[in-house]
Write a protein that binds this DNA or RNA. Structure first.
Length: 453
DNA sequence: AGGTCCC
DNA sequence: CTGGGACCT
């Protein structure tokens, strides 16, 4: 039956919306000169390709390719590289999600650039809605998305792939608007590997059993698939047949650990520099910790030399903290001395990290995310409510300090304040290489785009 | 704990 | 080709 012509009943469906070439698309929002050209976004330290524009894909560039191998060809190809700018991507991501949320009955953010959205309507209405979603994201945020609409998550993923692959669909594919026969024909031509939930391993195994296309898998006996493979794959089969069996991805449970680990642009071998590194990294980790309202019981520091040259060494050390804390001052002190105790001066370290674990909820944290700047300086405001006489003045101060740091950074930029070297505006020498980073147009006051009328 | 998958 | 997280067996 051709849904779009005959079927006027209401359906509840899922839309899977994702941004095309997300990082590259973000870069293009603020730099239109990148449109229509091959563009790649590089990983930390400008190491290798993590996102490619369509034009870059057409050149045969693969994700994971090291930039230094590509760079010589860049001028000839007109290829442009950008360092990753996660502040920008994170911010644009939340704007995309906000727009999607307006259109759905419910929303499940699946990753930085994709989201499931609950939709309902007749087949025609669903198709219109999908088109409107695409238009709105383009108009309000400026990035292109594809939309796949179907009865189950697996099918919605598939619909989304089809929307991407077939230009004539203009970024939108809704199963209810396809004739059943056309849908089968499409699935007969698509390899089973690459379907959501079918990775390389099970893909190979399926092919060996004669299940080569998505249509083959859809026709397969679910019970047999479960026996031979797994319940996961059984669910995929059932989902392909229109039976919802993937529950909403669970609310993200509290993290078990917070880690901040980076490699340097150039090796670091002096204690003074390693102190600086620990200073900065621990403050980053502590900020994340307190943003999530958690306290840590254990701190682990580590450093590492290059794996490629000579004797590799990966010194690390864990410290049990005297009490659960998120206090950046305390944590930084422990981190600096812990790393000092395991590191050998003169060794060329290329990366270091701080991990906070043994996490628990900070019970005193509820609803106090946004601390006012002046709550610290005197008056009754300096005494947090609920703190009885003699009880916990020190932890309260720590919480306030985290909030204060976050709030100042939010208002005046990341370099505005910090402990020790953390507050220096100038980047230290070992800072991650991000030679081609665009401005943080939407999250730093000093980097707002300027419009001239 | 190890395997698999996904982003 | 790197790392992290989630889920399953």
């Amino acid at each position: 039956m051709d849904g779009s012509l005959l079927d006027q009943t209401q359906h509840e469906r899922l839309a899977l919306v994702d941004v095309n070439n997300f990082y590259v698309s973000c870069e293009r929002v603020f730099d239109p000169s990148l449109r229509g050209r091959p563009v790649v976004v590089l990983s930390n330290n400008d190491g290798c390709v993590v996102s490619r524009s369509q034009e870059a894909k057409d050149l045969g560039i693969k994700t994971g390719q090291p930039w230094f191998k590509l760079e010589p060809f860049a001028p000839r190809w007109g290829l442009v590289a950008r360092s990753s700018n996660y502040e920008l991507y994170g911010d644009l991501s939340s704007r995309v999600m906000e727009v999607l949320g307006r259109h759905g009955l419910w929303q499940e953010v699946y990753s930085i650039d994709e989201s499931f959205v609950g939709v309902a309507g007749t087949p025609d209405e669903l198709l219109q809605l999908a088109r409107r979603i695409r238009q709105d994201v383009l108009r309000y945020v400026g990035v292109p998305v594809c939309v796949g609409v179907a009865p189950t998550k697996t099918q919605a993923k598939l619909a989304n792939h089809i929307a991407k692959a077939r230009a004539e669909l203009e970024g939108v594919c809704s199963f209810d608007s396809l004739a059943e026969a056309d849908l089968w024909r499409l699935q007969e031509r698509l390899p089973v590997t690459g379907l959501w939930g079918v990775g390389r391993k099970s893909g190979e195994k399926l092919v060996a059993e004669g299940i080569e296309t998505i249509a083959d898998l859809r026709r397969a006996d679910a019970a047999k698939v479960r026996k031979r493979h797994s319940v996961v794959l059984e669910r995929t089969v059932r989902e392909l047949n229109g039976v919802n069996c993937l529950p909403p991805t669970a609310e993200k449970a509290d993290r078990a650990q917070v880690m901040y680990s980076r490699s340097f642009s150039s090796p670091v071998s002096t204690l003074a520099e390693l102190d600086e590194v620990m200073n900065l990294y621990t403050q980053r980790a502590a900020a994340r910790l307190s943003a999530q309202g958690m306290l840590a019981k254990v701190l682990t520091v580590s450093a590492g030399t290059s794996r490629f040259s000579g004797e590799a060494s990966f010194p690390s050390r864990s410290v049990a903290l005297p009490e659960p804390t998120a206090d950046p001052v305390l944590l930084t002190r422990y981190a600096v001395s812990a790393l000092r105790s395991v590191v050998v001066p003169g060794t060329p370290y290329v990366r270091a990290g701080v991990m906070l674990s043994g996490l628990g909820r900070d019970l005193d944290h509820g609803g106090r995310e946004q601390l006012e700047l002046f709550s610290l300086d005197g008056g009754e405001d300096a005494v947090p409510d609920g703190a009885g006489p003699g009880s916990g003045a020190a932890p309260a101060r720590a919480a306030d300090l985290s909030g204060l740091l976050a709030s100042v950074k939010g208002r005046f930029g990341h370099a505005a304040i910090g402990l020790g070297r953390g507050g220096f505006a100038e980047e230290p020498e070992w800072s991650m290489k991000r030679e081609f980073r665009s401005k943080r147009f939407t999250t730093e006051w000093d980097e707002l785009p300027i419009a001239k009328a």
